[in-house]
């Protein structure tokens, strides 16, 4: 078969797949109700019925969204290699650089195990420290798995809020950290061994074929969905239990907006937790339905996803404890403000 015909065929297959995806997605709610009440014969309005329906509806919904979005993001990311992002950021003025770094943090491929090489690569290429930190805040916090889960469980408004506020925190915290002149708390060897270094290939992501980009999207689906599906299942199972069995307004006194201490407590609890966004969000969504306040819930999620102890330990290789503490302090402060603002405004 000619290459052109091959491409057309693939495009057609992709379009058919997308239509099938959409049809199934539209009818998931009806399907879940039918499975729960007609096939399984559970009583409407019962605790068990509510829990089962929640589970049977949310699991396929979230997994379907995840597959689609992770694939799309996987393809988009082939355009933004770390090398290219570094070139875009090197030599930028601080304020503009912070904004750009936070935005690029959302689309550049990032894994916390690469945080150190990336940090060194940025700093030694002349990216200001504060701008580099903006990137390191936004990259883990504003990620596609968290956004899909938020969209699936809370709707686009909360997902949008999380995206916007995550970016604002990354920009402002990075800018403040840049102002604090903390360069002396970066381990000195970071700047030392650059003289002897040889150049890595200039892989800027512009020369890839479309077939390779699609392949990268599929790999992302296999890697990411393969890793988080179990957390999605567990998270939604716990959420379903809460949904059906925990009484209304149970959380109001504990995590409601009148409890002033709930926001700092949420952040304090969130930092040492290194839960997957996929596991934590369904639980949090169920709590919200039982009277927890949105600001408290957002603060908790941001602290869990954005700040983690393992990340601090990894960064310790290049940053002195004082810089790490300041870094975490400033970001946690930003999250606190977001939490309070939401509880007051909404």
């Amino acid at each position: 078969m000619k290459p052109a015909a091959h491409a057309t065929l693939r495009l057609l297959a992709a379009a058919t797949g997308l239509v099938a995806w959409w049809c199934l997605y539209r009818h998931l709610a009806a399907l879940a109700a039918w499975l729960t009440y007609t096939v399984a014969g559970l009583a409407r309005g019962s605790h068990l019925g509510a829990s089962v329906e929640f589970f049977v509806f949310e699991v396929p919904k979230v997994l379907m969204l995840l597959v689609l979005v992770v694939f799309g993001v996987g393809v988009v990311r082939t355009f933004f290699t770390p090398e290219r992002t570094r070139r875009l950021l090197a030599g930028r003025r601080e304020s503009v650089g912070n904004v750009l770094a936070a935005l690029l943090g959302t689309v550049t491929p990032f894994c916390s195990c690469s945080a150190v090489p990336l940090f060194i690569g940025f700093v030694t290429a002349g990216v200001p420290l504060g701008v580099t930190l903006s990137f390191l805040i936004s990259a883990p916090m504003v990620n596609e798995v968290a956004l899909v889960l938020l969209f699936g469980m809370f709707g686009w408004k909360v997902a949008g809020l999380y995206l916007g506020l995550g970016l604002v925190i990354a920009i402002v915290a990075g800018w403040i950290l840049g102002r604090l002149r903390l360069q002396k708390y970066v381990e000195p060897w970071v700047y030392e061994n650059m003289a002897t270094a040889t150049d890595a290939p200039s892989d800027d992501g512009t020369s890839m074929s479309w077939a390779a980009r699609v392949q990268a999207g599929l790999t992302a689906v296999r890697e990411i969905v393969g890793k988080v599906w179990l957390y999605v299942l567990l998270g939604i199972a716990v959420g379903a239990g809460i949904h059906g069995y925990v009484p209304e307004n149970f959380m109001a006194s504990l995590m409601g907006r009148d409890a002033w201490w709930s926001v700092p407590l949420a952040v304090l609890l969130g930092v040492p937790m290194y839960a997957n966004a996929a596991g934590i969000i369904p639980v949090v969504q169920a709590l919200l339905g039982k009277g927890a306040a949105l600001g408290t819930v957002l603060a908790f999620m941001m602290a869990v996803i954005g700040l983690s102890l393992p990340e601090a330990i990894i960064l310790r290789q290049v940053l002195r404890p004082r810089l790490i503490a300041t870094f975490f302090g400033v970001v946690a402060g930003g999250i606190l403000i977001v939490g309070y603002l939401f509880n007051i405004l909404l």
Binding site: P109, S114, P117, G121, F122, N193, T196, T198, A200, Q317
Partner: peptide, 20 residues
């Protein structure tokens, strides 16, 4: 880590063949 950084890679893992 220092040895890794001497190759100037920004994301791990990386594959190096005969120093390239």
């Amino acid at each position: 880590l220092k040895q890794i950084m001497s190759f100037r890679v920004m994301s791990t893992p990386a594959l190096v063949v005969d120093g390239v």
